[in-house]
């Protein structure tokens, strides 16, 4: 046999080579399409690049970042991002968990509910935004306005009033993504061991005690995971708001994503837009790390 004559090439070394050969193409692609652009982004954020006034382009140091401190629109967008992310995530988890707990009690018809829940998830956010802007929230002829009129609550300009617009875009996001929390939590609930509940019943735990002392702790990993994933989606939300309000009225729904986009591609100020994008990336990554750290700590 030739094996003995061959220089000592162990199975582990062979496995290593095979693994690297399989992994390398994907890593190279990710390096080229995510990491290299990030470096480039960092560079452009240090430049003045204004497509409306190209003759002013050039290295600007940290000017773009310095400008943010005194930019009320930036601080407004940060605040809106926090409000938007926190409220949508909390709403999704509470609504999703409540509905999952309810549905678990229903002996039949869970399948129909699951199909219904899939529907919002598979829709394109931009189409969802358009739908809500026209058919659901439009004054006079939208579904919501027709309902409030029928209930005698009067007609409102749901996307035209700054405060109502913010509530509306939060509602849109919650509508589209609560099914995700619902489906995941429903599936997790179904995997909880029934004998634990039987034991708890024998130990005379009430329904509420069973929920607090058994369901919640057993479900916590899934809830934490849902919170993390939902936070990531909320932090990169763009298309639905863009389609529904475009960030307006004024800057009432202009979360950081929209501000960075509008600065770059509506006002064509790519340099300042880049620095906003860098801040956005830093915030998103920081929050992700924090959340994963929290999960591991527990």
């Amino acid at each position: 046999m030739t094996a003995a004559a061959r220089p000592a090439r162990s199975l582990a070394a062979q496995e290593r080579r095979f693994a690297l050969a399989l992994l390398a193409p994907a890593l190279v692609v990710l390096l080229l399409t995510t990491t290299a652009p990030l470096v480039y982004l960092a560079w452009t954020s240090l430049n003045r690049i204004d497509l409306a006034m190209p003759w002013l382009s050039g290295f600007a140091g940290v000017d773009n970042y310095a400008k943010m401190g005194s930019d009320p629109r930036f601080w407004n967008s940060l605040l809106l991002t926090a409000v938007y992310t926190a409220s949508t995530v909390v709403l999704q988890v509470i609504l999703g968990l409540s509905l999952a707990l309810l549905v678990l009690q229903i002996p039949r018809g869970q399948g129909a509910l699951r199909i219904a829940a899939i529907l919002p998830i598979v829709l394109a956010p931009v189409v969802v935004g358009l739908f809500w802007r026209t058919l659901v929230l439009a004054p006079d002829f939208g579904l919501v306005d027709m309902t409030t009129r029928a209930l005698g609550l009067g007609s409102h300009n749901w996307l035209g009033d700054p405060q109502l617009a913010l509530i509306s875009v939060i509602a849109i996001h919650t509508w589209q993504w609560t099914p995700f929390a619902f489906l995941v939590l429903l599936a997790s609930l179904a995997t909880l061991p029934p004998d634990v509940y039987e034991a708890a019943r024998l130990d005379r735990a009430s329904a509420w005690q069973r929920f607090v002392h058994i369901t919640l702790p057993l479900l916590r990993p899934a809830i934490v995971m849902v919170v993390i994933l939902r936070t990531m989606t909320a932090l990169s939300a763009f298309a639905a708001i863009f389609a529904a309000t475009g960030g307006g009225p004024g800057s009432a729904t202009e979360i950081l994503n929209l501000y960075a986009y509008r600065t770059s591609f509506t006002e064509l100020n790519l340099g300042y837009g880049s620095s906003l994008a860098v801040v956005l990336l830093a915030i998103t990554l920081a929050i992700s790390f924090l959340m994963f750290r929290l999960r591991r700590a527990r």
Partner: peptide, 8 residues
């Protein structure tokens, strides 16, 4: 990474 951060 949020897409808006990479689009530029």
């Amino acid at each position: 990474l949020p897409p808006v951060g990479l689009i530029i």
